[in-house]
Design a protein around this nucleic acid. Sequence first.
DNA 1: CACCTTTCCCCACAATTACCCACTAGCGGC
DNA 2: GCCGCTAGTGGGTAATTGTGGGGAAAGGTG
Lengths: 150, 150
Amino acid sequence: MIFRGRFEYTIDPKGRVNIPARFREQLQESGQESLVVTNYQGCLYAYPSDDWARIEEKLSKVSSVDRKLNTFLRFFIGGGVEVVPDKQGRILVPPSLRSYAGLDKDVVITGMPNRFEIWSLTKWQEEIGRFEKEGFEDPELAREINSLGI
Amino acid sequence: MIFRGRFEYTIDPKGRVNIPARFREQLQESGQESLVVTNYQGCLYAYPSDDWARIEEKLSKVSSVDRKLNTFLRFFIGGGVEVVPDKQGRILVPPSLRSYAGLDKDVVITGMPNRFEIWSLTKWQEEIGRFEKEGFEDPELAREINSLGI
DNA sequence: CACCTTTCCCCACAATTACCCACTAGCGGC
DNA sequence: GCCGCTAGTGGGTAATTGTGGGGAAAGGTG
């Protein structure tokens, strides 16, 4: 499942964030009512619970010898929380995830293949700012993007 | 599908922009009623939904290991919104895209191979102005253009 | 076991969007 | 010129979406 579009919402003092109506529809159509949210790359990743199950399965087969990989697993799996939208279509983001992603008021939700991401507005702007400034100057990246034929 | 021509319209306070009648015809003839609009290079890219689907497929296969490429995906996929023209042939441009492209009143729609682009008039003028001033002086660009056999 | 905090489940209001319909300007044919 | 058509623009209303808050239930702590 691919999620498209970027949306701005506010997270309220209780820690609730709205999920874009379109995303909710997509979830319903695929017969899923819950999401798994976890932390990565400065933002929160939200997966439909079925997709998360597949990821979990793969991760559980990873050999846990490598210390760094192990740390990643701790962080990624350990961050994962299952959430169900309320009647208004909002999810409650637990404090640990909220503080990791620095969500306090304005948040950006952005679609990706397989998941969508929840960003604090300021972190999002930094992320995109970096791309817009450096991205076009990086010849390798430019070549890669060109090869996509967009 | 190739779109030709340049058109000037006004975006109304609700965020609606007209699509050139010719483009609408072309879409209808190819049996498509929806478009996907996204953000890139200071303007909005509008693809017929079938063409977008092909792009999306490629993008979703891209390894998301590289951080910068990931950021690009966030921006490009995250920007993408499916829109359907209303009975008058207009589309509603969501706030996030409107603010990215700086659309407030006068917009320019210009044809391209595979897509058409939506520009704010002022950004369009800057873009073209920059090209007219610097473009002809860039020997590499001149060579490339010549090799196109125009 | 009492108390405090967090989460869940409602309800209500505000803002935005979808879906109509109407008006005007320009162009072509008669 | 006059009519009729199409393209582009503007606006009203109903439905949907987003935001805020109250109070009951659940969970954690001394």
